[in-house]
Write a protein that binds this DNA or RNA. Structure first.
Length: 296
DNA sequence: CTCCAGGCGCCTT
DNA sequence: AAGGCGCATGGA
């Protein structure tokens, strides 16, 4: 097998691979030295940066790289996105913290299942649960030399035939029932995730929220990260506190009002704005937080 | 030990 | 309609 069939270069400007793969939108990427290893569409992938390009390497030969270009959104003109943002102090700060942060276009089912598992969990633990889930119920696939075994994300059909008890062995606790029920709905096509793309964002959100364990926030994550609705604006605890602080002088603004503000303020790429704010909020106090904790 | 985590569902007012 | 509480599990 020729190496050229297993590697590709994507020309990109302003693409922060680290921030993009490690900003809580996807949970399976792991860093080894300067490389990032993950699984996209049943393929193990190793990514690294060259000046002006992203370098990709797979375990098997690849005739066509569109699947990865789509996942990474390398052809999206990010300057149009940032240019569409309202000109306010908070967003300027957040964007300048990670100007190369991008949104990935993930598989809708993996995204849906992952964010069901995210509820009331820290990102580190979400990653652990998903790792255990894939190892146990995913399919083994070839990985690069020196890498630990790679597994696909288990299909809805596969998880639909597992018991709640088996899922709980992956330490997901009460989320097991939600995950199994969601898997059954998707596996039986009672929910057709791909067809949701053809609906309006609002219609698709309503469909998603009929799934047990999926409320407004998780639905918005699926809309944004999995289905390509760039206007979806997930409001988690970080964004909730951040919006109150940055836009409302820490007034205890009710959730409903925050949602209306976000919808009106951030524009057609509100979801990108959300990701810049989220990553900025989560990383800005990391230094002071750890130093104050360690000073205990 | 207690507290809390990329929330949600359900039960009170 | 809005607010409060329990939920599994593990790390700080």
């Amino acid at each position: 097998m020729r190496k050229s069939d297993r590697t590709a270069r994507f020309q990109v400007e302003s693409y922060d691979l680290e921030a993009t793969l490690n900003s809580g939108q996807a949970f399976r990427w792991e860093k080894f030295e300067t490389n990032w290893e993950g699984i996209v569409k049943r393929r193990w992938v190793k990514l690294s940066r060259d000046p002006g390009a992203i370098v990709a390497e797979t375990a098997d030969s690849v005739p066509d790289w569109d699947w990865l270009k789509d996942y990474l959104q390398v052809e999206l003109p990010i300057e149009n996105v940032i240019g569409s943002f309202p000109d306010d102090e908070a967003l300027r700060t957040a964007v300048s913290a990670f100007p190369g942060l991008r949104l990935l276009r993930q598989d809708p089912w993996e995204c849906l299942a992952s964010f069901i598992l995210s509820s009331n969990k820290r990102i580190v633990q979400i990653r652990q649960i998903i790792r255990a889930l894939c190892r146990r119920f995913g399919e083994g696939i070839p990985s690069g030399a020196g890498s630990p075994g790679a597994y696909t994300f288990p299909s809805a059909a596969r998880l639909a035939e597992t018991s709640e008890g088996e899922l709980r062995e992956c330490k997901m606790g009460f989320r097991a029932r939600y995950l199994r029920e969601a898997a059954c709905l998707v596996a039986t096509s009672k929910i057709d995730l791909d067809s949701l793309r053809r609906l309006t964002c609002e219609e698709a959100r309503c469909q998603l929220m009929t799934i047990p364990g999926i409320g407004c926030k998780i639905a918005d994550c699926v809309l944004l990260f999995g289905l390509g609705f760039n206007e979806a604006f997930p409001i988690d605890v970080w964004i909730m506190k951040g919006l109150r602080e940055l836009y409302f002088k820490n007034r205890p603004v009710p959730m409903k009002e925050l949602r209306e503000f976000a919808t009106g303020h951030f524009g057609e790429f509100a979801g990108y704005a959300q990701q810049y704010l989220f990553h900025y909020l989560r990383t800005r106090t990391a230094d002071t937080a750890s130093s104050t904790n360690s000073a205990r």
